[in-house]
Simulated scan of single mutants.
Amino acid sequence: MALPGALELLLTRLGRFVVPAAVFVVAAFAFYFPARYVSMAVARRVTALANVDQAVELPALKVLHATIGVLAILVGASVSGVARFLAATAAITAGLTIALGFAARDVLGNVVSGVFIVLDPTFDIGDWIRWGDQEGVIEDISFRTTRVHTFDNELVAVPNSELTTNPVVNPGAKEFLRLCVTFEVDVENDLAAVTDLLIAAARDHPDVLDRPAATVRLREITETSAFLDVRFWVRSPEKIDVVRIRSEFTRTAKERFSAAGHDWPAADLSGEVGIRQVDEGEGSGPVVPDTDRRDGDDQ
């Protein structure tokens, strides 16, 4: 006979929770959708008329979107009475605030970093950037991450804090960009003739500038090889395929180098010779280096 009373108590407590929750959801969505539709349309119209840069427009629209969401939650909480409940339980609210603060520490750091990236005039959507051992073109800057499209056709989401705490190179920020290609040639070659050949190959490329002129620097020399750095300049690096220019120049230089009769460094054919005795009927197996044999031993 106690079951109906317990069930009634359960339904009563459940009703105290379900009704405010339903009111919260209805009120929040009733505010969110109209406010989002009107405010976003107005914001897009204003940014278009003001000719706002895309790197500023997209984050600003996302901030507006998030603000509408927060306001919708506040409206729902106020209408449903959830706000009064939270005010009555200040200790619980304070505990939740501290817990959320610790949990969102990294997220807030990325958000602040995203603001600095947006305000930095050296970064813009469509820019080619290089950080660490990666590089690509910025596609979007959001609250937490910056999306970069790499030259391997990969989309990388980079935390904003990583871009603000580490060196980032923007090769296309200036009008001109200097490229450097290193060649290893045989040390017995006439280095002056090789230098003239490489400079001519760079000068003949249509995308390489005449001024500043291409130069060749001897970077390192060993017993068998000489390392030459060919440096030349290109214009508007954000609009041209730097990889293509480097590849075309390298191929042209190699063809002219071989046609002129110059020598490449001799290949280093060093390694171990393995000896293995195979008994009759035994299948093939891995070759094991004979570590007991020394140079000069009788074969």
Rank of each mutant, 00 (worst) to 15 (best):
G271R: 12
L269G: 04
I73P: 03
V187L: 04
A66R: 05
A99Q: 13
L191V: 12
A6C: 12
A99F: 15
L14I: 09
Y37P: 00
V38A: 12
I138W: 03
P34E: 06
F33A: 08
L74H: 08
G95S: 09
F151G: 01
E8R: 12
L9G: 06
D210N: 11
T145G: 07
D204A: 15
Q134M: 08
V181C: 08
V52I: 15
A55N: 01
L61M: 14
R147M: 13
V63K: 01
F227Q: 03
A201F: 00
D241Q: 03
I138R: 02
L96V: 07
P34N: 02
P212H: 13
P4G: 15
W128R: 02
V26I: 15
A213Q: 11
V208Y: 00
P206E: 13
T215Q: 11
V52S: 07
F33R: 07
A50G: 10
A30M: 06
T182L: 12
F85Q: 05
R294M: 08
V242S: 04
A72G: 09
S258N: 05
D186E: 06
R16K: 09
V23C: 14
R246S: 13
T222L: 02
L197G: 00
A90S: 11
A88R: 14
G285R: 11
L49K: 11
L198E: 01
R276I: 04
A213P: 04
W233I: 04
K239P: 02
P237V: 09
E223G: 03
R45Q: 10
G271M: 13
L269M: 09
L86A: 10
